[in-house]
């Protein structure tokens, strides 16, 4: 700290307390013992009026970060940044700096303060107005920014909510299984009812081929879900390739698939198709060098076997046939008997 005594004398500035208060509405003048001798108008308002004059600094303020550096003249030294907390409002902090008055602070110190980061709370708590701030203080800009930010965030939040709603309804309306790119259950049901409703007066001829993977759980358990996903993509490719153009291939469960095979009445044709699928599924695909071995069980329902084909009944019958395949040792195809299953089950 340079000794002011060795510097050439600097011109002194004299001003009234009123002028000082106008320039620094949050000024604080302490005598060398730390007693308050004067306050700016805004600080007076915060501390509860001019009655604070003559009371000790410590009654109103608690020193923040600067405490460790506190020196003589109470707590302050020239130019040091100060951080104060209001004892009466522990949520409000003030910051500023102090200069010594008179020769080596014999007249005390002058402290200029401003609000810290809790500006908005202070404005609300003390009912402050623009007139309470020095025009040099960026308080108004900070308040303005805080409101502008809140308004913009409000718009963004509303936009996000609309986008989220749109995303959800898009998901609900989605017709594709994201992993395999096959149709999903919803798409399959739509396609099946469209096929059935378009049949009036014509003898329907299509097949439902219900495929359930065998040993898939073992692959998942031993090699992990990533391996399982590879297998599912492989299965999807096989089914897609074995189906003909216009047929629907859907993934309707974890390892369950259904094909809607159009324009077919010959059971042997569909059974051969099913056997081809099974033999291709049994060729191992590899994940990280490890073979993934699966097979498939298939149940088939043919619309020509029904007097009045009903989607739910055909699905239930195909499902029952599938379980016959499973029971008889997996890796095989079974043709459903119409009405074999109770469709309500």
């Amino acid at each position: 700290m340079p000794d002011s005594g060795s510097l050439p004398p600097q011109p002194l500035i004299a001003m009234s307390a009123g002028a000082l208060g106008q320039l620094m509405p949050m000024a604080l003048w302490l005598d060398p013992r730390g007693t308050i001798r004067g306050v700016g108008p805004t600080l007076a308002r915060i501390l509860g009026g001019r009655a604070v004059i003559g009371t000790p600094f410590d009654v109103h303020f608690r020193l923040g970060r600067a405490r460790a550096r506190a020196q003589e003249t109470g707590h302050f030294s020239n130019g040091r940044r100060l951080h104060l907390w209001l004892r009466a409002n522990p949520g409000v902090s003030l910051r500023g700096s102090a200069v010594e008055l008179g020769y080596r602070g014999e007249e005390g110190v002058l402290v200029n303060l401003t609000f810290g980061i809790q500006l908005a709370e202070a404005v609300r708590g003390f009912g402050l107005t623009e007139a309470d701030f020095s025009p040099c203080d960026l308080a108004m800009e900070l308040l303005y920014l805080q409101e502008a930010k809140a308004a913009v965030l409000g718009e963004l939040r509303a936009l996000n909510m609309r986008l989220e709603d749109a995303r959800r309804s898009a998901l609900d309306q989605a017709l594709t299984d994201p992993l395999t790119g096959l149709a999903n259950r919803r798409a399959f049901d739509l396609e099946l009812s469209r096929t059935l409703s378009g049949l009036e007066g014509r003898r329907p001829s299509f097949a439902l081929v219900h495929v359930d993977l065998d040993h898939f759980k073992a692959v998942n358990d031993s090699l992990g879900h990533a391996a399982g996903d590879i297998v599912l993509e492989y299965v999807a490719r096989v089914l897609r390739e074995e189906a003909r153009r216009g047929d629907v291939v859907a993934r309707v469960g974890g390892d369950e698939f259904i094909l809607l095979v159009r324009e077919v009445s010959d059971p042997e044709f569909v059974l051969a198709m099913g056997r081809r699928m099974i033999s291709r599924l049994e060729q191992p695909c590899f994940y990280a060098g490890e073979p993934c071995r699966i097979s498939g069980s298939i149940g088939i329902a043919l619309s020509v076997d029904y007097v009045e084909p009903d989607g739910a009944q055909m699905l239930a019958d195909a499902d029952a046939a599938l379980y016959v395949s499973k029971r008889e040792g997996r890796g095989r195809c079974t043709l459903a008997k119409p009405g074999q299953a109770d469709s309500s089950g």
Binding site: A120, V123, R124, L128, T129, E130, L143, E147, A151, G154
Partner: peptide, 13 residues
């Protein structure tokens, strides 16, 4: 015009 924002600003819908 109260400097303190009256509550949170609602999005203008």
């Amino acid at each position: 015009f109260d400097l303190a924002m009256p509550g949170a600003v609602e999005a203008h819908h």
